[in-house]
Design a protein around this nucleic acid. Structure first.
Lengths: 349, 349
DNA sequence: CAGAATGACTTAAGCGCTTCAGAAAGTCCA
DNA sequence: TGGACTTTCTGAAGCGCTTAAGTCATTCTG
């Protein structure tokens, strides 16, 4: 920058202004500065130095609970982040991805402390993930998505319990009594098998607990006690990984006539397993998913599921980010609604 | 940091060393420094200032051609980035996502110039995307994935042409003569309809052109001239968005008995469309995909497709990144192989 | 026991920019 | 004509850290 200034015969401040505050110098001088910069091969202010001077990095740290391929195998994440990114992009912010370390349910604390970001967005991390403590230690503003509220941070979530309740009510109203629950990872060391009610209620993940509670409460109200509800934990996070547990659930005698699945991915796995066992969906087995990811619409059969407005959630998170960055005070925790979408994977018992 | 130094009664350099070079001070003094820091509420060196001093940011800019949800709707991206991230993570690098602007086939140039990153990784950008020029202007090292080689940058690609040729040969060997090509976006303003051979060969995207060439060359060798091959461009990037074009392709008379699809996503759309038209796959229509993404394995029927080792590609990209960052000289462009995987979506004509 | 080697810390020169408080020169208006 | 404004540019103080070179006291070594 000094070189450019010398070349034009002005001060460094003027060169800086040419880039950052065009109104501070005459248009023609600005032109001249830019031309000299180009000639010298100066591509504009060094971003790091600028950040140091302005104490703004222009990056938003996104904390994930797993590695990237697992995290993004859930379309819910890409849709949410896309909406978030669309909101913050015009303000010049980009997303810095911090994948989980595979153990703590979030990125390593050290990663947080050395990440260059103005704010952190935590997406469905495990309760008590060390990354969250690190965010606080560092004094970084925080927005949490689908997690319990943390004092001093903004939160956006989904009406998970109500959505799950609606799914369960739907099956009950169709006359189902033998209903199984196909759960996402609950145990810290997932074993992919049948879960006790206590285990099912103690997941490290907030949305998991909420959905489970929504299912079980509603079934109990309908006279189906939790003890009579087989609950199986998925053996893996992908459709393929979930298949063994799906078979396990469908091998039970008496076989459930309907399945409440904690995600559409699990529902697709259940349908695939059912098909391989020669069961028709929804003839022999009704299946309800959760999330309404795009494939749910064109799966065979199209999936009855609980839809959450992922874009709205992402946009809301984006607005929270911008607000906190502007120094506005932390708003009260918010929720987007969840609604049942009935398609063709459920039928009367 | 000065406050911590004062509290302990040492110089700032010593505090810095306590964090960065434990061997430069006695263990007990280091302990004392760390304790004082904790007490004062100092969470460690400011990452931006550290970056300015070391001229290392610890971030890798990932340049994408579209918005995040589109980009990540292709599982190939998450798998590749996951492998990349796994390689670079232990060295302390994180990924900074720069989505495309929706027009230029890459992020806006300005984004590149202000991004805090040590190196850029471009993933399948359109030829001549301004972002690539910006990377060069800024003097950032560059690794390109699935793009034409750029002088001075490292490249990793896939044997796209050979893979496509293998797919086409497979159909020819099964006796198919009426073969359609279902292409990803070719035109800069995609219209989702039939393409002339010239249009098909002029895609802005390298892998697109290569695959097209592989298909057409092989078919021509088998006595099927390009003029006899209907080529349709997908109307959208998602399965849903591609459906209309799939119907268009299957509406042609005489109807193709086999389809070469440039991605598994398009193949799934084609299968879905065929099913809705009452056609059986592979009975009435053979379908070949490309990529071998996870859903290809558990789709109905499982997809015959061209498998590229995405993890290997991502890992290779990661190694290239680390190498360039270490200052090693740019290696020659490399390719991972592509191989045909025959499953159940293809059958004799 | 002198001189070399080692260990533990400090000094100070940057890293490349932003921005506030002026200074200099020109413009306006009564 | 002269004081009050404007416009345009400059000076210099940071932003918070790293690191090469240097100081000083101790420990070896022959």
């Amino acid at each position: 920058m000094d070189d450019v200034a010398d070349a034009v015969g002005v001060s460094r401040a003027t060169v800086s202004n040419a880039y950052n505050r065009p109104d501070q110098l005459s248009a023609q001088l600005r032109e001249e500065v830019l031309r000299a910069a180009k000639k010298i091969g100066y591509a504009g202010p060094n971003p790091t130095a600028r950040s140091l001077a302005t104490s703004r990095t222009g990056a938003i740290a996104v904390l994930l609970d797993t590695n990237l391929s697992t995290a993004f195998s859930d379309p819910a994440l890409s849709v949410t982040l896309d909406a978030l990114s669309t909101v913050v992009d015009p303000e010049g912010h980009a997303l810095l991805l911090l994948p989980g370390d595979g153990e703590s349910g979030g990125p390593r604390a050290e990663r947080i402390l050395t990440a260059q970001a103005d704010i952190a967005v935590a997406y469905s991390l495990a309760d008590g993930a060390p990354a969250l403590t690190a965010v606080r230690d560092r004094g970084l503003p925080l927005v949490v998505i689908d997690q319990p509220h943390i004092r001093g941070s903004a939160r956006i979530g989904v009406a998970d319990r109500a959505g799950a309740a609606a799914a369960a009510r739907h099956l009950v109203e169709l006359g189902h009594r033998r209903i199984g629950i196909f759960s996402a990872q609950c145990l810290s060391a997932p074993r992919g098998g049948e879960l006790s009610v206590a285990e099912a209620g103690n997941s490290r993940f907030h949305d998991n607990r909420e959905r489970m509670a929504g299912y079980l409460e509603t079934l109990a109200e309908a006279g189906i006690p939790a003890a009579d509800v087989p609950i199986w934990e998925a053996s893996g996070l992908s459709v393929e990984g979930a298949l063994p547990s799906a078979f396990g659930l469908l091998d039970r005698r008496p076989r459930p006539t309907a399945l409440l699945c904690m995600s559409d991915l699990l529902a697709l796995a259940a349908i695939s397993a059912a098909r391989q066992l020669g069961l028709s969906v929804p003839g022999d087995l009704s299946v309800v998913g959760y999330d309404d990811v795009p494939p749910a619409r064109w799966s065979e059969p199209p999936l009855t599921t609980v839809r959450q407005d992922l874009s709205a959630k992402g946009r809301a998170a984006g607005e929270l980010v911008l607000g906190l960055l502007r120094g506005e005070k932390v708003p009260a925790p918010a929720e987007v609604p969840a609604e049942l979408v009935v398609r063709d994977s459920t039928a009367p018992a």
